[in-house]
């Protein structure tokens, strides 16, 4: 789907939320849901930041690090991709206190989700770097650049463009898995929907509103990433840009 039709969907979802909120007594649910959505957004944003950082570090270690770092990176990736996100969250939340390590739920949430998505991201980054043509590396050697200069100035910027779409998917995955934090006592959007449902029994409007809010957030990510992709491709592809 192109950006215009995604934007149309976004607008439709926003209108649907407004209409639903305005009908009946549904308005009373909005403050709670929006409060939850705000926490969801905060966890998602910090989690995505952490995911990008760990993914890049892990990929670079795996590709160019000395053997111990390489092994560490492989273990990290396989471990976090091999176990499920909820198990990881529960482990951080329930087991670490057994070892005397206590963390804020927010920290647990960001750490758990960020590291989980970062493990998938590491493979995206690795693929992106490896996808850059060998000739580019050779050109940097011919220009006498160091490996680090080449990576930073030539290889990573090109890999970046190729990585935008898969990262868009991963950000959406992360946004969706923020719902899991409702199971470790955090009052995110899903948690708010559940509690509101528990005492009002207005199941259908509440959950529909919550679903629509998630849809709005996902669409925002998708549109943002599409825009970013188009912007970074400017000039690099024939028939675009200047």
């Amino acid at each position: 789907m192109g950006i215009p039709s995604l934007a149309a969907m976004l607008a439709t979802a926003l209108i649907a939320i407004a209409v639903l909120a305005a009908s009946g007594d549904n308005a009373i649910f909005m403050p709670g849901l929006l409060e939850g959505a705000w926490l969801t957004v905060r966890i998602a944003v910090v989690g995505c930041g952490l995911a990008v950082i760990t993914a890049t570090a892990a990929a670079l270690c795996r590709l160019y690090g000395p053997a111990p770092l390489r092994w560490l990176a492989v273990t990290y990736v396989e471990f976090f991709r091999g176990t499920s996100a909820l198990v990881q969250l529960f482990w951080l939340f329930f087991v670490l206190p057994d070892f005397g390590i206590f963390m804020e739920p927010f920290t647990v949430a960001v750490l758990g989700l960020g590291l989980n998505v970062g493990a998938y991201g590491a493979e995206v980054v690795r693929g992106g770097i490896q996808g850059v043509q060998r000739g580019q590396w050779e050109a940097t050697t011919a220009l006498n650049m160091t490996r680090w200069q080449a990576l930073r100035r030539i290889i990573l910027p090109q890999a970046f463009v190729a990585m935008i779409p898969p990262w868009g998917n991963l950000f959406i995955e992360l946004l969706k898995s923020t719902a899991l934090v409702s199971l470790i006592t955090m009052s995110d959007l899903t948690f708010k929907a559940r509690t509101l449902n528990d005492f009002s029994m207005q199941t259908i409007p509440i959950f529909t509103l919550a679903l629509l809010m998630y849809l709005v957030l996902s669409l925002t990510i998708t549109i943002g990433m599409r825009w970013l992709e188009r912007k970074s491709l400017r000039g690099m592809v024939r028939g675009r840009g200047r």
Binding site: K176, A179, A193, F207, L211, L215, S218
Partner: peptide
């Protein structure tokens, strides 16, 4: 829609809505 929203809330939705 399904792919853009969390599985967890879909589980809740079905679990609480279907009885309605």
């Amino acid at each position: 829609l399904v792919r853009s929203t969390p599985l967890l809330i879909q589980i809740f939705f079905l679990f609480f809505v279907l009885p309605r």
